[in-house]
Amino acid sequence: MGEAGIAILPLAPSARFSLRLAAAVVEIGEAGGFWLDIPINTCHVAGERMTVRLGPNEWLLFGPQADAIRHDVAATLGDRFFSLVDVGDRDLAFAVAGIHARDVINGGCPLDLDDIVFPAGSASRTLLGKAQIVLIRPGAERLYRIECGRSFALYVRAYLENIAHEFLRSPGSGILA
């Protein structure tokens, strides 16, 4: 997929939590397999669990099992002051991949996606057109995960497809249902 011109595909549902925790607490490092002590606007993948740090005291936690995540994180954080809210159904996700992935995302997103500025492991809340998104680049390949509010998904997808139009002639390109 990484070699395609451009590919856009909806991602399967995932468990998702919004974790809020006083920044000073990040010294605990890891909570239930989620690495909290990572720089703002980065992500960390450990097995099936991915941590995204969006701000000084805000993280998104992804993984396959909501109950397990809730249990593991709560067990680690104990009686510290934190907020863990299930947002698994709040957002939907797309993958945008291929050599034109950046061109397509930059068709509506004002972030600088150059490898130096937005390398593997980057993640940030930002905009795509008139929709707020979270843009995540888990690895070095040109594969980006876009998270958006559930009711914005139709717009986000149509917007990406609109931009992708001009690249669809490149080999291996496609928009998957």
Binding site: I40, L54, G55, R125, L127, Q132
Partner: peptide
Amino acid sequence: AERWLHVHGCGR
């Protein structure tokens, strides 16, 4: 001196 909210970013 002015205040800004990074509303579509870190939210701060």
